[in-house]
Nucleic acid binder design. Structure first.
Length: 543
DNA sequence: CGGCCGTACTG
DNA sequence: CAGTACG
DNA sequence: GCCG
């Protein structure tokens, strides 16, 4: 058997199967009754691996869900059932659509179609390495700010590990070993616990968003992400938040396979309920609750509608409740705002990812046009582009000028937009600053040429003095920003796209009672410093 | 048990 | 104002 | 959902 990245996970399942009386063999022989293939294995890959032209009669080929279900239901379920089919398996049953097979949950009686001989041995297949991640950090492109920041970084190297003592609680257990000794000179009166409480904030940790292909928890993460999406579509923002945090924790614990309740619950952000779900995923390769939820066809339609620009969950649910099932339905019959109408018209355009190179091209066009309006106004491409993504969902551009205020820049924005409409680069506006001090502009742009898709493009007008806070905000990602802002508020401060403020008085519901006084807004790195967060370059802000 | 980011634009 | 959006 |  080839070494495999998933071996920890497979080992777990193998042991589970043996616990229940299965015999696992590592060579193919006529004693084999079942072949359990890892999820992504295709039928012909099994044939190839076993050097067979066909699987002998009487041997069942299934995915890992089958043994899981057998354990779940306490009996041998039918390995020919749809749920257990291996992709490419030449049987009639694979045509069955899971969405029509409504009552999935009923224990499908194990019996008849079992192979003649009793199940006594299992053959386990290795799983191919997982695919690559969507957002790949690259350090190739730098702008002036990046270089300045990196300079600061190299002169004052900060090791995140130095900030995270071994957990104060007794059961540190399987956490990614932090070296015990070393102590930064405790600035002022900061005690251990003072440093500890804030280490739970996501912004305190390096995240690249890369799905480490060696992360043994990738299957768990995948299922939890699906579950999170369900809760998101149910408008359960707090459950969604909890899932997001727990998933993020799993992603960073990429050296340990989390398979037991104790392991799981010791992770920050994972409580009793999620720990139980993780155990269920590990031992059965699925989540019962998720299977139910995915059966609801409304869920699919809801997602479709929610994908329209300007349509949130409230509107999407209304459309579903009204009985609409397609974008055409809505376009013809529903009352829509103008942005929503465009959102439907350009639905597929806006869904497409934008190659990094094209993002740069859009940025260059804006930059060039800007020069004809005001030489001193600069544009910076932000968002996932600045984080180094190889493709982006939209294009985020900051317009700024040293010493300029919002109103001066707002005029520039209006001229810029007009000019870019004239040259048929901008195709429409979606959300447009209407006041003289408006700061944001949402719309669509496209490159010249036949069939070029419209791209979502956002401008943010930023006074010269606020460039640091604006960079922080517009670089994201969203989770990172929220984490930074929450940390600020816990420290009696307030962070937004204009700056970091202190002495913010909050009433109940944390409602802001005063503005606070400005601490820093021009220097992105100083905002990190004041908040006590080790500086992280954009490509490490993917939580 | 209550909190979970903070802001800007639309209709 | 609620809803939606941005990171 | 989790956490204090």
């Amino acid at each position: 058997m080839k070494p495999c990245l998933k071996r920890a996970e497979r080992k777990m399942r193998i042991e589970k199967a043996q616990e229940y009386g299965a015999t696992v063999v590592f060579t193919f022989s006529n004693t084999v009754t079942h072949i359990i293939a890892d999820k992504d294995i295709k039928y012909n890959e099994i044939l190839e691996f076993l050097q067979l032209t066909e699987i002998p009669e009487g041997i069942a080929v299934t995915n890992p869900r089958w043994p899981g279900d057998c354990i779940r239901y306490g009996k041998l379920v039918d390995p020919k059932d749809f749920w257990y089919q291996v992709p490419g398996c030449p049987t009639e049953s694979q045509q069955r659509n899971p969405l029509q097979d409504a009552p999935i949950s009923e224990p499908i009686g194990g019996h008849s179609s079992l192979p003649s001989s009793p199940p006594s041995s299992l053959q386990v297949q290795p799983r191919p390495p997982p695919k690559q991640q969507p957002e790949t950090p690259t350090n190739s492109q730098k702008d002036a700010l990046d270089e300045a920041i990196e300079e600061c970084l190299t002169t004052t190297p900060i090791n995140i590990e130095d900030f995270l003592g071994s957990s104060s609680s007794s059961d540190t257990e399987s956490s990614p070993e932090s070296s015990p000794k070393r102590r930064k000179k405790a600035s002022s009166s900061s005690s251990n616990s003072a440093r500890d409480w804030q280490s739970h904030f996501q912004c305190m940790h390096k995240h690249t968003g890369a799905l480490n292909p060696e992360n043994p928890n990738s299957r768990t993460i995948q299922i939890l992400e699906e579950m999170m999406q369900i809760y998101d579509s149910l408008k359960d923002q707090w459950r969604t938040r909890s899932y997001r945090i727990a998933i993020s924790t799993l992603k960073s614990s990429n050296t340990t396979y989390i398979s037991t309740y104790e392991q799981a619950i010791s992770l920050p952000g994972v409580g009793d309920r999620l720990a139980k779900k993780i155990v269920e995923i590990v031992s059965t390769d699925r989540l019962q609750r998720l299977e139910y939820a995915k059966l609801d066809p409304k869920d699919q339609i809801l997602k479709l509608f929610h994908g329209i620009y300007g349509v949130g969950l409230v509107q999407a649910r209304k459309f579903v409740a009204a009985g609409y099932t397609t974008l055409e339905d809505i376009k013809k019959n529903a009352t829509l705002t103008e942005p929503q109408r465009i959102g439907i018209e350009r639905y597929s355009d806006f869904k497409q990812r934008i190659p990094r190179e094209e993002v740069k091209q859009h940025g260059d066009i804006v930059s060039t046009a800007l020069k004809t309006i005001d030489e001193k106004v600069q544009s910076h491409v932000m968002g996932s582009y600045r984080r180094g993504a190889k493709d982006c969902g939209d294009i985020d551009i900051i317009l700024t000028k040293e010493g300029a205020g919002v109103e001066e820049l707002h005029e520039v924005l209006e001229k810029l937009v007009e000019k870019l409409f004239d040259r048929k680069f901008l195709m429409c506006g979606l959300a447009i600053a209407r006041h003289d001090d408006g700061t944001k502009w949402h719309g669509a742009s496209r490159l010249e040429g036949e069939g070029k898709p419209w791209r979502r493009i956002d401008f943010l007008v930023v006074p010269g003095e606020e460039i640091g806070a604006a960079f922080l905000y517009f670089t994201g990602n969203d989770v990172f920003n929220r984490s930074m802002r929450l940390l600020a508020s816990k420290k009696g401060m307030r962070l937004n796209q204009k700056g970091l403020y202190k002495d913010v008085v909050r009433g109940k519901n944390r409602e802001k009672l005063n503005e606070g006084t400005l601490l820093e807004s021009k220097d992105e790195k100083k905002i990190f410093e004041i908040l006590g967060v080790p500086y992280r370059p954009p490509e490490h802000r993917i939580c």
